[in-house]
């Protein structure tokens, strides 16, 4: 699904990712953990195509294509989804309108007919119920005036509707109280599937109490310094990043 080889990325001439390699297969959930400033969010942003990140070396292949050569919208239509750490407020653009435009952009790309308003609303309502999002949400602008928890639920709702092949969730757990964390985790678990992969970027082990990853990687200094199973997250929680990173010799 995703193959990252020796990826090097700079922001404003400052190297952030310094040779990161990672392989993600369909059906897998990977957690990428690391201290602040380790490059976690940079990795998520680069995979989604945000501007301002300069690719200085290495390669990223997604389903056999050179991912970095694609525009952000082309990546989205190919099934890559970024759940934002800080979802953007867009006053005046209606939530449901964006959902419909996004879904139809993908469907057109795949040569499928656009959903009519009725089918679309049925789909949205079903997923909103699942995510415990109130009806009033339909009439609100994208993320405008949403609490931190509402914004993250909205990201997951978008993901549930768009059904990506590869979801990258950037600190989706930050700023969530325990109830919201459970709802968001339920949304993530609902998408677990043999033909889908997910990358959870997180600072804390907390999310992994609710979503069980297949692999955990520790990112430090722009590289993955340790990889392991879900028990690695426990170790991080118990010993802190300092010990784990030092032990890895980074």
């Amino acid at each position: 699904m995703l193959q990252i080889d020796d990826l090097q990325v700079s922001v404003e001439d400052r190297p952030i990712l310094k040779g990161l390699s990672l392989k993600v297969n369909a059906g897998e959930i990977h957690a990428i953990m690391g201290p602040n400033g380790s490059g976690k969010s940079t990795l998520a942003a680069v995979l989604a195509g945000r501007e301002g990140y300069v690719h200085t070396g290495g390669a990223v292949h997604y389903r056999g294509q050179d991912l970095l050569a694609l525009a952000p919208e082309a990546r989205a239509r190919e099934g890559v989804f970024l759940g934002f750490q800080y979802p953007v407020e867009i006053p005046g653009v209606n939530n449901v309108y964006l959902l419909k435009a996004s879904l139809n952009a993908q469907r057109r790309h795949r040569g499928e007919p656009e959903l009519d308003a009725f089918e679309f609303l049925r789909l949205v309502r079903e997923q909103m119920t699942f995510m415990g999002i109130p009806e009033e949400f339909l009439r609100r602008s994208v993320n405008e005036g949403f609490s931190g928890g509402e914004k993250k639920r909205n990201e997951i709702l978008q993901m549930l509707i768009l059904q990506p092949r590869l979801a990258i969730l950037d600190e989706i757990d930050s700023g969530l109280d325990i109830d919201a964390l459970k709802v968001v985790s339920r949304g993530i678990e609902a998408l677990r599937s043999p033909d889908r992969a997910m990358i959870l970027v997180t600072h804390y082990q907390r999310l992994l109490d609710y979503v069980t990853p297949d692999f955990v990687h520790v990112l430090a200094g722009g590289r993955i310094v340790r990889s392991g199973g879900k028990e690695l997250a426990r170790e991080l929680e118990a010993e802190g990043y300092g010990a784990v990173v030092a032990g890895a010799g980074a």
Binding site: G49, L82, V88, V93
Partner: peptide, 9 residues
Amino acid sequence: FYLRSRGLD
């Protein structure tokens, strides 16, 4: 970028 990341050109 947010809108483009959702597939809008």
